[in-house]
Design a protein around this nucleic acid. Structure first.
Length: 568
RNA sequence: CGGGACGUGGCGCAGCCUGGUAGCGCACCUGCUUUGGGAGCAGGGGGUCGCGAGUUCAAAUCUCGCCGUCCCGACCA
């Protein structure tokens, strides 16, 4: 949008030094550029400059949502507890609960499935379907650990949309439409991203993808195949583990003394065997309060979420006294043989003979074989995929990358329509539950992810679509009133040519203005100072690569046009 | 929730060990000089030292408790 804003009229609280609280790149730069300020743990204000960026991203999302037939609306943050009690989400630990003056219970929405489904109860006929409704609404989550500025917060605006269809086929269409819109949104934002299969998480439902922007500050991990396009969140990723070097098979387990050995590394070293030919026992207390033994290969890591799914709920590691009572041995010497417990076993242990704890402190068993020597209650995928594992589709090597989740899409099915009774009548008069999907994007998190990917040591390097302004005119006006006038003329010309312009007319020294310009990261900087103006020129510089050229002040807009298309 | 660290003008920090009425840099205000990569000189304003108890003649400093924040892990989109 063409406009000109004077820096002297904008609150720009930039910081010369890195704030002590900030570690992640985006957090540091957002604070230093005066785009955000902290209010409390995980609570941030978007300051004027940051809000400008936010709104640009929001507008991109809005355009793409409208393009797939989304209808924008606005739902309240404060919602009656009743809705959440009906869907069973009232007990979620991250839910903020509160009461009004007459003690009625309320909830601060952490997403809007309940609310939107409440509205969907007014949909009565198949003729009204499908629908896509969305809003940009505040979400509140009592996160156990907010971190890294905007990357993980307790209050944030989310674009959440919801689709309502007659059946699974309709849902598949709405879901695909969203996937396409999301790819366009993140492409337009200049983000490098992966679309990965993911866990259904808090929302519940039958299928999901996440949009992951790779960056060092990312707290999620994405499994990627080097050979094909397999991509999945570690939460759901599967792989073929590297094969162990097995020792000679034995006819029966053989006990061996392993004094003081408490780790897999120590065990493998002592027995001079491949750590991959060992097993590791993790006693846990399952959701029903009983002790369960989880068994994975020695070199593997038990994946919390997969274990949770296998056990059907939350679990915790068993305490030392519980272990002693059940096994008669210490934690380092546990195994599946001869125990009277449910034993859930990772698929990697299905075939082959492994070393296992002997349930006698200081002893292990060689040659332990599933089915022959112990009876697993089930085999299941329990382990976390490791870099170097093989792809289940093509066999090529997998790698794992940190990434930040900027969006997700879920097939909800009837997870919410059934408990909230959102039904419609079919052609033949049959009442059926509406089939739903839900789709989220965090615009502010997207903004932070862009910074994680687009910055250098001087500051942010915004792609054009997200920049707070197209052009930053640095007016070195202290050198004379004439320069101020010429700067205004140049800004006016640029605005007429359709650009949004920040004109730095502040009474600051050149160095400070340049430093701020680098920090803000507008794609093009135009300097008006006495050095160039003697021959009636200005200096046009790209933030992206630092290329600078001198152009006549009268044709600043043409010089900008000329390089605009080549900028990211 | 477990581990670690921190809390001293707006920001970044020192002082704490070895108690004696608070200091540095930046920022801010005034004046003069300066002005193409975070200026110089002079003058000036601003702090219940996170909160509460305790020890002591005396506490930013020692002790105990609490609160807050950040980082790692756990957990979680």
């Amino acid at each position: 949008m063409a406009e000109t804003i004077r820096a002297s009229q904008l609150y720009l609280p930039t910081l010369r030094e890195d704030p002590a609280e900030a570690e992640a790149v985006s957090h540091r730069l957002l604070l230093r550029a005066g785009m955000i300020r902290r209010v409390g743990a995980g609570l941030y204000t978007l300051m004027p400059l940051g809000w400008r960026v936010y709104r640009k991203i929001e507008q991109i999302i809005r355009e793409e949502m409208d393009a797939i037939g989304g209808q924008e609306m606005l739902m309240p943050l404060l919602t009656p507890a009743e809705l959440w009690q009906k869907t069973g989400r009232y007990e979620l630990p991250e839910l903020f609960r509160l009461r009004d003056r007459s003690e009625r219970p309320y909830v601060l929405a952490l997403t809007h499935e309940e609310t939107v489904t409440h509205h969907a109860t007014e949909l009565r006929s198949y003729r009204q379907l499908p629908q896509i409704w969305y809003h940009f609404g505040l979400k509140e989550r009592d996160e156990p650990r907010p971190r890294a500025g905007l990357l993980r917060v307790r209050e944030f605006i989310m674009k959440d949309s919801y689709s309502f269809d007659r059946d699974e086929g309709g849902l598949a269409t709405s879901y695909e439409a969203h996937a396409g819109a999301y790819r366009r949104i993140f492409d337009r934002c200049g983000l490098d991203f992966y679309e990965v299969q993911s866990d259904v998480g808090l929302m519940g439902g039958s299928g999901a993808h996440e949009y992951m922007a790779p960056c060092d500050a990312g707290e999620n991990h994405v499994v990627l195949c080097t050979g094909c396009d397999y991509a999945a969140s570690v939460d759901v990723a599967e792989s073929v583990p590297t094969p162990p070097d097995f020792p000679e098979p034995r006819g029966a387990p053989e006990e061996i003394e392993t004094p003081g050995v408490e780790t897999i590394d120590a065990l493998a070293k002592m027995l001079a065997i491949d750590p991959r030919a060992t097993s590791k026992a993790m006693p846990v207390v399952g959701p029903d309060g009983t002790l369960v033994l989880g068994l994975v290969r020695g070199d593997h890591r038990l994946h919390e979420l997969k274990m949770q799914k296998t056990l059907g709920g939350e679990f915790r590691p068993a305490h030392a006294d519980e272990i002693r009572e059940a096994f008669g041995a210490e934690g380092g010497s546990l195994g599946p043989v001869g125990v009277d417990l449910e034993v859930v076993v990772d698929e990697a242990l299905r075939r082959g003979q492994f070393v296992a704890g002997a349930n006698r402190t200081g002893y292990h068993l060689l040659g332990v074989e599933a089915m022959r020597d112990y009876a697993p209650s089930q085999f299941s995928d329990l382990r976390e995929v490791e870099p170097g594992d093989a792809c289940i589709r093509c066999g090529a090597t997998l790698r794992v990358e940190p990434a930040i989740e900027v969006g997700n899409i879920f097939k909800l099915g009837t997870r919410y329509s059934e408990p909230l009774d959102a039904t419609y009548l079919d052609e033949d008069g049959t009442e059926r539950p509406i089939v739903m999907g839900s789709y989220g994007i965090g615009p502010a998190r997207t903004m932070a992810a862009i910074i994680e990917q687009w910055h250098d040591h001087d500051g942010i390097v915004w792609p054009r679509v997200a920049a707070p302004f197209d052009v930053h005119v640095v007016s070195l006006s202290a050198a004379g009133a004439q320069i101020g006038e010429i700067s205004d003329d140049v800004a006016g010309t640029l605005e007429s040519a359709g650009y949004s312009v920040l004109i730095d007319d502040r009474d600051l020294r050149p160095g400070e203005k340049f430093a701020d310009a680098d920090l803000f990261g507008c794609p093009v900087r135009i300097t008006v100072g006495k050095r160039s103006i003697e021959d009636g020129a200005v200096d046009v510089r790209s933030r992206f690569n630092g290329e600078e050229e001198r152009a006549p002040a009268s044709s600043a807009a043409e010089a900008l046009d000329a390089r605009w298309g080549s900028l990211p």
